[in-house]
Design a protein around this nucleic acid. Structure first.
Length: 427
RNA sequence: GCGGGUGUAGCUCAGUUGGUUAGAGCGCCAGUUUGUGGUACUGGAUGUCGUCGGUUCGAUUCCGAUCACUCGCCCCA
């Protein structure tokens, strides 16, 4: 183990891992575009206020997890801990409120100063979508359907369950918060230290506690559902009906809450039991108050974010590498080496991925061709050079034939398509 | 931030009840095969035994600290 370590909670994405990672992001991007979401990107750092104000003063993200520093001018800068605040800021900065709905997909690194665990790094990556400007729960349904579609396309191993809940509108939530605090205060002696602390900061979070004593108290706590006003109830019913219309299975989880203050109404998570404690793979909700809080016009929004590392770990099988064509120069004549390079470039210009080993005799080069899982070998030695031809070998079947140089590209193409008659009569 | 576990070759791991040359499998390199790969056989290279310090005649082994990873909590994607 080297002493040259990367910073805690960061790690390198080596090619194998990167391939899985990119597959997740590309699946997200192409699926999102089918739902009318265009890609955008915001800076990976913002003025600290963008996050501090919008995420809520009490969230852990703000209080202890942000990578915040002063730049050379003394401005407080923060590496983004999540994507929604930046998109909302961009929405306001660029005056996009006149062309609604605004539907975007994004991907990129996020940063949180947390204790690393599997599926939880300090620099991690998310894909996410935001649908801004639609107050109707149809928007929530579309966003959730897109999420499920991506997860399905990824063919994840293990079950990924959709859990939903409603946080109600502000009025309902405030009424409930009062009732909940009132109830919990009556049992404060039974609550864990963590939860006693949360009673002040974020009482809804106590519903989510894993502490056994807490759970006993929570079992008899009032439910948010009992405090929903008619508008909030209708919203939630419309959401559930919309999901059912599309055949999207879900489980209602009345204890599902959000860590970030700007959420209201819909909250949802896609979870798996295959990742231990880090089982949430995609999560989101509705944030009708966010943009106004940030200084824009009152504009509703709904969206989700998903952890790319977590999704890559769930991929049933890693995406295949492209099988290249292997160029095999054979023989000592320097002209062979030079012409092989020219032929390699010709094939690449014709659209093929070509592997050209830089050294070794023919046997060694063939081994290499096998190692890079080449499908076709293009053998070019003294005989071929004099005959102005190449020998094309199908590395799966072992059949090979020699064809004139001007037929090289077409024949390779036919072989890769599986339509080649390899007995392509001599030269 | 709190509590537990782990750290030996590129990878997965064995081992040393404190003693001089630290092992296996896989992978890698070479050869059997100077124009033909995958299989097989033969040979080879690679370790500051995570780091720093302490105890000791002697530490990879014991102790402490530290760093990283890991499991749970917190929180969250």
């Amino acid at each position: 183990m080297s002493t040259l370590q990367p910073v805690r909670g960061t790690h390198d994405l080596l090619p194998d891992e990167m391939r899985a990672f990119r597959h997740v992001v590309e699946t997200g991007r192409t699926t999102a575009s089918r739902y009318g979401f265009d890609e955008m990107a915001t800076p990976i750092f913002e003025f600290s206020g963008v996050f501090a104000r919008t995420l809520g003063d009490t969230s852990d993200i703000v209080t202890k997890e942000m990578y915040t520093f002063a730049d050379r001018k003394g401005e407080s800068i923060t590496l983004r801990p999540e994507g929604t605040a930046g998109v909302a800021r961009a929405f306001i900065s660029n005056g996009l409120g006149n062309d609604l709905p605004f539907k975007v997909f994004y991907s990129g690194p996020m940063f949180r100063y947390e204790r690393p665990q599997k599926g939880r790094q300090r620099q991690f990556h998310q894909i996410g979508v935001e649908l801004i400007g639609v107050p109707d729960p149809q928007a929530d349904v579309e966003v959730i359907a897109l999420g499920r579609h991506i997860l399905d396309s990824l063919g994840l191993k293990g079950n990924v369950t959709l859990e939903i809940n409603t946080l109600g509108d502000t009025e309902s939530r405030e009424a409930y918060r009062g009732a909940l605090v009132n109830y919990l205060s009556g049992h404060i002696g039974l609550l864990s230290a963590d939860s006693r602390d949360r009673l002040e900061r974020n009482p809804l979070r106590i519903l989510d506690s894993k502490d056994e004593g807490d759970r006993a108290v929570i079992a008899n706590a009032p439910l948010l559902g009992e405090y929903l006003n008619p508008a909030s109830r209708t919203f939630y019913d419309d959401l559930k009906n919309g999901l059912m219309d599309l055949g999207l299975d879900f489980v209602e989880n009345p204890r599902l809450v959000r860590g970030l203050d700007y959420y209201g109404h819909t909250a949802f998570e896609f979870t798996t039991d295959a990742l231990g404690a880090q089982g949430t793979v995609m999560a989101g909700g509705r944030y009708d108050g966010l943009i106004k809080t940030m200084g824009g016009g009152a504009t509703p929004g709904v969206g989700w974010a998903a952890g790319v590392e977590r999704l890559s770990m769930l991929l049933a099988e890693p995406p295949a590498t492209t099988r290249p064509v292997a160029m095999i120069p054979a023989g000592a004549d320097p002209m062979i080496k030079r012409e092989a390079m020219i032929l390699t470039e010709r094939l690449r210009r014709a659209g093929f991925a070509v592997d050209l080993g830089f050294s070794g005799n023919m046997g060694k080069r063939m081994k290499r061709a096998n190692k890079v899982s080449a499908r076709v070998a293009v053998i070019f030695g003294e005989d071929e050079r004099l005959a102005r031809a190449v020998t094309l070998r199908d590395l799966d079947s072992g059949e090979q034939a020699t064809v004139a140089l001007d037929r090289m590209e077409d024949t390779v193409r036919a072989m890769l398509a599986g339509t080649a008659e390899v007995a392509i009569g001599g030269i």
